[in-house]
């Protein structure tokens, strides 16, 4: 179900050195006192920081008067919002109907094997996060995955792993 109960420990504080709360000021100026602003504010904050650290929730709440409870309610409801840092490259393997029928499981399994992590986790070097999504709208290329802005279709486990390995190589250089 979408509604989630989370404990305060699950809401990660950033390690402080990275969060420049001042970056939020233009966002706050744009949306403050506009009705229906809660989701766009959180989306903009996540665009800045990659996830929404605890300080950011608190800062936005202080600056806009938005209720902290409501903010957490929304942030945990929608799958787009992240309360934890993610890898530099997010690998989203599609598990929509068309991809499921074309064996998307094999893609996820192979990537889990190659990157030695579970679905939803991030590699220790912070390079990759592995996720599943339900349909990226390229069903005729099933099974498909998306990394950054690039969509990869007609995958096999091997092709998927090769794509990731290539990114790994580029990053090492």
């Amino acid at each position: 179900m979408r509604v989630k109960r989370i404990s305060i420990e699950e809401v990660v504080a950033s390690d402080n050195k990275t969060v420049n709360l001042g970056l939020l000021d233009p966002v706050i100026a744009k949306y403050k006192n506009k009705k229906g602003n809660l989701i766009p504010v959180l989306q903009a904050a996540q665009n800045i920081f990659g996830f929404i650290p605890r300080e950011v929730f608190i800062y936005i709440s202080e600056q806009t008067g938005l209720n902290l409870n409501d903010m957490y309610g929304v942030a945990t409801f929608y799958s787009q919002f992240r309360l934890k840092p993610v890898g530099k490259h997010i690998i989203k393997v599609c598990h929509g109907t068309a991809c499921h029928v074309q064996n998307a499981n094999v893609i996820t399994d192979s990537l889990m094997e190659a990157l030695r992590l579970n679905d939803g986790e991030t590699t220790p070097d912070g390079l990759f996060t592995l996720e599943t999504v339900a349909c990226i709208g390229c069903c005729s290329l099933a099974p498909a995955m998306i990394i950054g802005k690039e969509v990869y279709g007609k995958l096999s486990g091997k092709i998927a792993v090769n794509v990731v390995k290539e990114i790994q190589l580029k990053e090492k250089k």
Binding site: T97, A98, A134, C139
Partner: peptide, 9 residues
Amino acid sequence: DPGAFMDRS
């Protein structure tokens, strides 16, 4: 609906 993409198109 995962598996439909006419609206996107």
